[in-house]
Design a protein around this nucleic acid. Sequence first.
DNA 1: ACCTGAACACCGTTCAAGT
DNA 2: ACCTGAACACCGTTCAAGT
Lengths: 191, 191
Amino acid sequence: MGRRRNNGRFAMPLDRSVVLKAALEQLDEVGLDEFSTRKLAAALGVRVGALYWHYPSKQALLDAVAEHIAADAAAAPLPDGDWAERLAAIARAHRDAMLARRDGARVIACMSAPGPMAHAFFERLVGVLREAGLDAEGAASAGDVLTSYVNGFTVEEQARGLRRQSEAHRERLFGFGVSVVIAGLRPLVEG
Amino acid sequence: MGRRRNNGRFAMPLDRSVVLKAALEQLDEVGLDEFSTRKLAAALGVRVGALYWHYPSKQALLDAVAEHIAADAAAAPLPDGDWAERLAAIARAHRDAMLARRDGARVIACMSAPGPMAHAFFERLVGVLREAGLDAEGAASAGDVLTSYVNGFTVEEQARGLRRQSEAHRERLFGFGVSVVIAGLRPLVEG
DNA sequence: ACCTGAACACCGTTCAAGT
DNA sequence: ACCTGAACACCGTTCAAGT
């Protein structure tokens, strides 16, 4: 009868996915700066040390959160349409996935290494650019320009500053930036 | 004779600028993740509490570091040449100023609010775009695209990933991205 | 296999009291 | 004006021991 309790129920043993789920909830509640393994353990009804059975470090846990965000970005549907429309859709999915979790853009920016989902996301982007006619190196470079822009914009937007601007204005500004990058890529694709 | 010692010398009272200078040194030595007010106090030969006389918080200190970086970026000389060359020079100065300090790009990304130097930097960028013929809103939007790209690229470059690529390759990739953004802006300026 | 208990080596911040 | 001393309320991580 010495089983661990959580929210009044006797709990199943933890596994990586329930720890990750609780981490996502804690991140949304307190933000990245206040995110702590000790609070997370308390929310799970467990002692801190228990988490280290499932994840080797706090950073590994945050990397799993980053992968979760990347998975969302990679899972968004790709519309029919020309390469420019598809690129714009990928950029929006990328930003939306980060905005969906508190400090999501900073979690992505601070991840220690891109995981399989981050690679899948980037490969889909590269795929669109290759279909548009770029070679492997050109597509990788062009993909890097777009993702760098989206990351930079969204970190700024989510962390501060743009917060006092209306959401409509931020939306317009982002759409403008995406169209600028795509316009800059156009001569490479069609040229 | 109870005066504070530092490096074997009797030290002058601290002020904001010597604390900032020591903070810049500590950042370069240990990086943002290991940066702590207690180590900083030790390096200054002082107790932790003393720092809080000069800066209200660790974040305020990091904001001062961010301002220092922004000042470097704003102070870089603007070449003669057309708007595109001037924009490219600003983008390079922006990246160089962040790369000059360990984790500089993340310090900029995590600053709580842009200070006067950050504004001065951005105003210079906007000035170039206005001289090129854009109106106030267009110049601000265009300036945002470029700075977002530079921030996103440099955070990624400095934090990880691109580290295993050669510096020459990163340089080329950055130059490519800047040229893409500028090409995307060209129709707005000249159209 | 999974978790507890307890420790270790740190943190940022506050503030009365000293000089 | 500027700093000390000392505390407060936390951290992330490790690991023998329990079940």
